[in-house]
Amino acid sequence: MPGRLKSPVRLRQDRLVTMRDLDAGELDRLLVRGRELFEGQPAEQFQGAVATVFYENSTRTRNSFQEAGRRLGLDTLQVGREGSSIQKGETLEDTLHTLRALGAVIAAVRTPEPGALAELPDVGIPLVNAGDGWRQHPTQALADLLAVRLAGREIQGARLLIVGDILHSRVARSAADGFAMLGAEIYLAGPPTLLPPGLAPALGARLVTLEDGLREADLVMVLRLQQERMERGYLPSLGEYRREWGLTAERLGRLRPDALVLHPGPQNRGVELDAEVIYDPRSLIHRQIACGVAMRAALMEAMLDAR
């Protein structure tokens, strides 16, 4: 085949469980490739299917993996909790073997079990963690990194403030890893019930008040606040959360003029952020989604090439 396209990225392993499975060089090259794909360069084409195995609900991440697969010429196979053998107690390992037999050449897996993919024996196809409980969601971090780069920002030396429910956030854990690997400084702010004292150092980050953080930050990542936190008593009310930790229109005014705002979606408007924030010129929220497709395509391309 003349001039067959190849991914310019070489990965050392064919399983991405946490951001730390990549080194800074691999991460940087993936972002370069992701940018090319974002800008419309053709991707390498493969036979077979991308399987999405989601033990938890998801709209955007699942669709993003499927769309990224289409960019690579892949069909899609999907397994969800409802109406699948998962309900019959089939193990993840068996499910993946079945999907491979049906033509899957790569799989994206979302599970409530932190570290589930790390403990899984080899199943013969590359695996991407699409979110494992509270632990990691590495392709979200890849999308966020690309969104920041596309906005023309250096990640090296940037101050990233992550606001909200850090304790239960796989987005925060993978972002803290990914941005730090490329030289950013990580700051965390949120209610002490969801950001206990030992948490920031455990993630290589510094604890700040929201006001200090907003004043200094180059990048502000606002996390989704789940209704469940109220039910478990972590917080007295959504209203109080918004008043104390929400990125309101008023607080937006205190951000640096060149700061950028990220949110992994879906947003609870009027809780962790106001609608004005989403449509502010400093918001990358809509671009993050397109970046997610490009980065998932870049990642899967490199993983499939390594096989």
Partner: peptide, 12 residues
């Protein structure tokens, strides 16, 4: 145990 390791691993 709740502490640095549980925070890192994302385990309750």
């Amino acid at each position: 145990h709740e502490g640095k390791v549980s925070y890192r691993l994302g385990l309750p």
